[in-house]
């Protein structure tokens, strides 16, 4: 709590000191209020108008939302997001947890392995997409290499296959972020009090039971953080799809983020684009708001 409170009769300098903190904070606050919350309101407003190439202010009610939910294109994007997000979250969490537990066994060379697992996180999704696009290309990538090495019948053409292309996005995204999830779990593991583990071992718990019954339940906060971060990354995924498949073949890897972009800026259906953005925001808010609220309340106590 601010110690300095306004007393009557104090000189201007003291009074300036009292308002200075709020004065210095206000530009940041103004930026956030205008560029984040003002913009959100404006996009929500646009989603109720018949905006096409340019924003229009003619109110059309829920028409854009009705159009949106009637589009097979949007349903494809949502179905893809469901497949992508669930696989991405589950696989990243599984790999991250396994690597963290393994690395926590007093591994020689941990200092070398950890940065190797993590470096993809420093790369742009465009770089990742460029690398994997080519690696997965049947003509010159993995399939070709396996055949040249003598496995003549080896086939791996997912990236060109409408039914399988979405899984190539999962592969590249897991490659990029699973090391990060590993770091989160490792920090959690290193925070667990060793006395608990020792006590359990003296009581005769097997290693498997130790992890299943004691360690993994203690990692609950890390699981929650991983889930929140990964799900929000999944919903926002845009760059990787553009670089890896461009949304194709056909619409096979279209996600809500690419849908919004193409409807707004290339198909000139800004109203529909805005309504899809609103739905994306609501999905993320449903995950983030309770999480942030709980964390901030915890801190305030």
């Amino acid at each position: 709590m601010a110690v300095a409170t306004v007393r009557p009769g104090v000189d201007w300098r003291t009074r300036l000191q009292d308002v200075l903190p709020k004065l210095v904070l206000s530009p940041s606050l103004a930026l956030i209020l205008f560029f984040v919350y003002g913009f959100i309101l404006y996009t929500v407003f646009l989603s109720f108008t018949n905006s096409r190439m340019l924003p229009s202010h003619d109110w059309v009610g829920l028409a854009n939302y009705r159009t949106l939910w009637g589009l097979s294109h949007w349903h494809t994007a949502l179905a893809n997001l469901a497949i992508f997000a669930s696989l991405y979250i589950v696989i990243c969490t599984a790999i991250g947890l396994m690597l963290a537990i393994f690395l926590d066994q007093k591994i020689r060379g941990e200092g070398v392995l950890r940065p190797i697992y993590l470096y993809p996180m420093a790369l742009s999704f465009i770089v990742t997409g460029t690398a994997w696009k080519w690696f997965l290309d049947p003509g010159i990538g993995l399939e070709n290499t396996m055949r040249l090495w003598g496995w003549e019948t080896f086939t791996f053409g997912w990236i060109k296959d409408r039914d399988m292309a979405i899984y190539t996005i999962v592969i590249a995204a897991v490659w990029q972020t699973s090391g990060f999830v590993m770091a989160m779990f490792l920090a959690g593991l290193r925070g667990i009090d060793n006395e608990i583990l020792k006590a359990a071992q003296i009581d005769g718990a097997s290693t498997w039971n130790l992890y299943r019954r004691i360690v993994i339940p203690l990692l609950r906060p890390a699981f929650l953080s991983a889930f929140v971060i990964l799900s929000h990354l999944a919903i926002k995924s845009y760059d990787l799809v553009i670089a890896l498949t461009g949304g194709g073949p056909g619409r096979a890897t279209e996600l809500p983020a690419t849908f919004m972009y193409s409807y707004t800026f290339t198909r000139n259906q800004m109203g529909v684009g805005a309504s899809s953005a609103v739905i994306m925001l609501m999905t993320i808010a449903a995950i983030m708001v309770p999480y942030l609220y709980a964390e901030l309340r915890e801190r305030d106590r």
Binding site: S28, Y42, A277, Y293, L296
Partner: peptide
Amino acid sequence: TILFGLMLFACFIPFQIVLIPMAR
């Protein structure tokens, strides 16, 4: 704390929600 919460939530919005007004 509420102000901070508002700033923090801003980190996690899908940027699609601000693209149109930002372009303008």
